[in-house]
C-alpha cells in the first residue's frame, strides 16, 4: 500500500490574466517507507504540489480534478479544512526551505514544540520531555536548555534541525520536505541529509523530498519524480531513471547538472528557452518548444509510456529513446 497515491491531480490558480494551470494530470505514488524525490526547475509547481496535498493552497487556487489517496483510504481532495487541519502535524508534517524564517521569532523553541502537541492530553512536563528527546535525536547541543532559547539564538543549520525535530516529533506517516537544504552550505547539507535518512529509518515514515539538486536526490531517494511546467514528465526508481532517462527534459537536466561537469568547464550548460506560459499551455507536449527531438508527434497530448517496471515517461518517443539510451 502507498502512503500517498496521487492520480490525475490538477490545480488551477485564477489570476487577473485568466486561469493559470499550475499542475496538470500529476500522477505518482509515495510508497510506504520510501523516499521519493521531486525535481524540476523553479516555477515548475513543486510548492503548489505540496500545498495541494496539505490543503494549504492560496485563496485563488483550486484543485480542479484528480485525487490524493492517503494511506489507501482517504481522498484528501474531498477533506474539509477541519479534517485537513487534523491531519497536518500528526499524520503529514512538513519542513520548509527557509530555516531562518520557519520558526516564530518571539516564541521560545520549547513553547513552539509544546504548542504543536496541543492535541495530546499529556502534561506539559511530558510534552517538554518529548521535545527534548527529539532535540537530542537531531543532535542539538545542550538540548535540555534549548527549550528556553529563541530561534535567533541558533545557527541556520541548527534551526533546520529543530524544524526537522518538530516535524518528526509526532511520528507522522508522511514527511514532506520542501528544499530543506537549499539554504544551507554544502557540508551542512550533507549532514542534514544523513540525519534525515537516519530518522526516516528510525520512525519508518515515507518522505517526499523536493530538491533541484540532482546529487542529493541520487544520494537520498529511492524514487524520483521529474516535473516540468506543472506536469510529471518522468518517474521511476532513482537508479533506473538516472541511468536510462527516457524523457528529453530529464536527459537535459542530467547533462546540465553541475556535479557532472568536468572542472575545466567554465560555463554551466543550461537548457535554452523558458517554461511555457502556464496560462496558455500548448496542446501537445509542454517541453516541445525547448526539445531537440521535436517532430509532428509532439503536437498532440502525450501519453505516459511505461519503459520499465515502475518507470514511465510522458513522451511519444519514450520507448525507443530508452532502448537507444540503454544500447549506447
Amino acid at each position: 500500500m502507498s502512503t500517498l497515491a496521487i492520480s490525475g491531480l490538477n490545480v488551477v490558480f485564477s489570476t487577473e490574466d485568466g486561469p493559470l494551470h499550475a499542475l496538470k494530470d500529476v500522477t505518482f505514488d509515495v510508497p510506504e517507507r520510501r523516499i521519493v524525490g521531486i525535481v524540476g526547475e523553479s516555477g515548475c509547481g513543486k510548492s503548489t504540489l505540496i500545498n495541494a496535498i496539505l490543503g494549504l493552497l492560496a485563496d485563488n487556487g483550486t484543485i480542479s480534478g484528480g485525487e490524493v489517496l492517503f494511506e489507501g483510504r482517504d481522498d484528501l481532495t474531498q477533506f474539509t479544512p477541519r479534517q485537513m487541519r487534523d491531519l497536518r502535524g500528526p499524520r503529514i508534517s512538513t519542513v520548509f526551505q527557509d530555516p531562518m524564517g520557519a520558526l516564530n521569532p518571539v516564541l521560545s523553541v520549547g513553547r513552539q514544540m509544546i504548542n504543536i502537541q496541543y492535541r495530546s492530553d499529556q502534561s506539559k512536563e511530558q510534552k517538554a520531555a518529548r521535545a527534548i528527546e527529539m532535540l537530542k535525536l537531531v543532535r542539538i547541543p545542550d538540548a535540555d536548555s534549548a527549550l528556553e532559547r529563541y530561534p535567533h539564538q541558533f545557527s541556520g543549520g541548527m534551526k533546520q534541525r529543530i524544524a526537522i525535530a518538530m516535524a518528526l516529533m509526532m511520528e507522522p506517516a508522511l514527511l514532506i520536505a520542501d528544499e530543506p537544504t537549499t539554504a544551507l552550505d554544502a557540508t551542512l547539507e550533507v549532514t542534514t541529509i544523513e540525519l534525515l535518512k537516519d530518522l526516516q529509518e528510525k520512525i519508518g515514515c515515507s518522505v517526499m523530498f523536493i530538491s533541484h539538486h540532482l546529487g542529493v536526490i541520487a544520494e537520498l531517494c529511492d524514487d524520483v519524480v521529474v516535473m516540468y511546467a506543472g506536469e510529471v514528465v518522468e518517474r521511476g526508481p532513482v537508479r533506473e531513471v538516472f541511468q536510462h532517462p527516457s524523457h528529453p527534459y530529464t536527459r537535459r537536466l542530467l547533462e546540465c547538472d553541475p556535479a557532472r561537469q568536468t572542472e575545466r568547464t567554465r560555463i554551466l550548460p543550461t537548457i535554452p528557452g523558458e517554461i511555457p506560459d502556464l496560462r496558455a499551455r500548448p496542446r501537445g507536449c509542454v517541453f516541445a518548444a525547448r526539445c531537440l527531438d521535436r517532430h509532428e508527434g509532439c503536437d498532440t497530448p502525450q501519453p505516459d509510456i511505461v519503459v520499465a517496471p515502475g518507470h514511465a515517461a510522458r513522451c511519444n518517443l519514450a520507448g525507443q529513446t530508452a532502448r537507444e539510451g540503454a544500447g549506447a
Partner: peptide
C-alpha cells in the same frame, strides 16, 4: 504572510492560536 505562520499552519495549529 511570514513563513513561520505557514509552518504553524502546516502543523495544524488552531486558527485562533
Amino acid at each position: 504572510e511570514a513563513s513561520h505562520i505557514r509552518t504553524a499552519r502546516a502543523f495544524g495549529l488552531p486558527e485562533n492560536m
